[in-house]
């Protein structure tokens, strides 16, 4: 079964690079006792892929990884333990800033039946699942195994034909905190920028510099001052086709104001090209 895990990066984790996050998740799955599927070959590795690496220093509440786990596919099949009915499973909460241990406890209570079912028999070749983890338990097991700076928000089961997270990313949403005194200037700059038909920029690739139009890559640009603290919301093209860093748009908006930097930079979500959140695909477990 392929699952999609939605997670965040806070505090210390902002300074942990992509590869280290990947290795950490391998450990979290082991700590959570969720058996992963392995690739073939002399040095098999767990099958896991991430949607889009996050730049060092950024926090996030909308990161995704897809993982293949060894999991009974169909309820009632063979000796497999049936996952609890979706209706009975614990409600998966909306992203919370910091999952607290009490919440995890509550989730464990909400799932029924998982504990009383005997573990499935070991299949030929593959490792036997070490423990039976019920549907909602998957989330609570991961939460109990992670660190507070690496919160896990949701686990969904991906349909057969869903593209993997990495291939399907089309957009990314960011939130940039700003100083109150910048809001006026930034609003004007944002309006001017969005009113332009094209924004030609020089983009450096590995081998050469190419000219590209940034305008169709900016899907949303808002300056919000009502809420405190004031901030910018940016929806930008992301992924393999065009990957625009929020810093690039920030520089355009702040041209003429010297070395101005946003107070903080946070990724809010990753989306398909049509704007659907990667977290909306598949079914809740």
């Amino acid at each position: 079964m392929i699952i999609r895990v939605k997670f965040g990066k806070e505090g210390a984790l902002r300074f942990i690079g992509h590869l280290d996050v990947l290795r950490t998740f391998q450990k979290i799955f082991r700590r959570a006792d969720i058996p992963m599927a392995y690739s073939q070959g002399f040095s098999p590795h767990p099958i896991m892929s991430f949607a889009l690496p996050l730049g060092l220093g950024l926090s996030s509440e909308g990161e995704y990884l897809d993982a293949e786990i060894v999991w009974p596919e169909e309820p009632g099949e063979g000796d497999s333990c049936p996952p609890p009915d979706a209706g009975e499973g614990a409600p998966v909460p909306e992203p919370v800033p910091e999952p607290v241990p009490e919440l995890v406890e509550g989730l464990v209570e909400g799932t029924g039946g998982g504990d009383s079912c005997p573990p499935p028999e070991a299949g030929e070749g593959g490792p036997p699942p070490k423990a039976v983890v019920g549907g909602g338990d998957l989330l609570s097991a991961l939460r109990a195994a992670t660190s507070p700076d690496l919160p896990i928000y949701a686990v969904r089961r991906l349909p057969e034909k869903a593209g993997n997270a990495m291939a399907s990313v089309g957009r990314a949403a960011y939130r940039l905190e700003i100083r109150p005194e910048w809001t006026g200037e930034l609003k004007e700059a944002a309006q001017a920028l969005m009113a332009r038909e094209s924004i030609l920029i020089q983009k450096e690739t590995k081998s050469k510099t190419v000219e590209m139009d940034l305008r169709p890559c900016i899907h949303k640009l808002e300056v919000n001052q009502g809420d405190s603290p004031p901030h910018l919301i940016l929806h930008l093209s992301a992924g393999s086709k065009a990957n625009i860093k929020p810093e690039l748009v920030w520089e355009l908006l702040n041209a003429g104001y010297g070395e101005r930097k946003p107070l903080s930079l946070r990724r809010l979500d990753l989306m398909l090209e049509d704007g659907t959140s990667l977290g909306a695909i598949g079914e809740e477990l």
């Binding site: 210390a12 300074f15 690079g17 950490t24 700590r31 060092l56 220093g57 903080s264």
Partner: peptide, 18 residues
């Protein structure tokens, strides 16, 4: 944040490990 973004391997100084 500014210092952490400047130094090599900032993860050395932030703790929070499993």
């Amino acid at each position: 944040e500014e210092i952490l973004n400047t130094v090599e391997k900032p993860a050395r100084y932030v703790g929070g490990e499993l």
